[in-house]
Design a binder for these strands. Structure first.
Length: 190
DNA sequence: CTTCCAGCCTTTT
DNA sequence: AAAAGGCTGGAAG
């Protein structure tokens, strides 16, 4: 998944500025236990670029390495503690969502889909077909974009389910998708 | 209700 | 060029 390079996004940037930039981007990350196992939060200079979940810490780091193979990764538990706690708070109480700047990277199409995901209100769900119609594409394409969302929870891909009402799939395990939706439904019911 | 199938759009190899 | 996805709707058991 060749993520778009946000460092090149500014067309007014001079060649001198380009040269002065570090050749490899630095990413800070932190892995912490959470109500759904472990989470890994990774942030760039612009904001969170990955929020991964899993049963153990090691695979999370492996996934981060794979997704950002070109980046220099540096653990920063202290510096990210605040952000991580925000995410944990959201997991404990969906009514208090994390307020983090996001650095969302993906193809133009993926960004369109992910933006649509962010419009789904707390406590609600959409099916792949609805989003496909809204975006003028095919459910299958929506699903693959959801599946490649690097910002679990923060970009609520878990709010997309099958037309039949089945939960369909979730990159980080159907059990977590179910838990997230349950938590959000409960929060909304209050 | 369950399986099977053929189209469907993007991304990855 | 080919395969593989967090899909769907319709046909068939």
């Amino acid at each position: 998944m060749p993520a778009t390079d946000n460092r090149s996004a500014n067309p007014t940037e001079t060649p001198a500025l380009k040269r002065s930039r570090p050749r490899v981007e630095g990413l800070r990350y932190s892995i912490a236990p959470c109500p759904l196992g472990y989470l890994l939060l990774a942030v760039s200079a612009k904001g969170a670029c990955a929020l991964l979940m899993g049963d153990a810490p090691e695979p999370l780091l492996a996934e981060l390495r794979q997704r950002f193979a070109e980046a220099a990764l540096q653990v920063d538990d202290a510096g990210l503690n605040d952000d991580v706690q925000q995410v944990v708070s959201q997991l404990n109480d969906a009514q208090h969502p994390a307020q983090l700047p996001l650095d969302i990277r993906g193809t133009a199409f993926q960004q369109r889909v992910w933006r649509a995901l962010q419009q789904i209100p707390l406590g609600q769900t959409r099916n792949y077909s609805e989003l496909a119609t809204q975006l003028g594409t095919h459910p299958r394409a929506v699903a693959s974009a959801c599946a490649s969302n690097p910002l679990g929870l923060l970009v609520p891909c878990h709010r997309v389910i099958a037309r039949t009402g089945a939960l369909s799939g979730y990159r980080w395990g159907l059990q977590r998708k179910a838990a997230l939706l349950k938590g959000e439904a409960d929060a909304q019911a209050q």
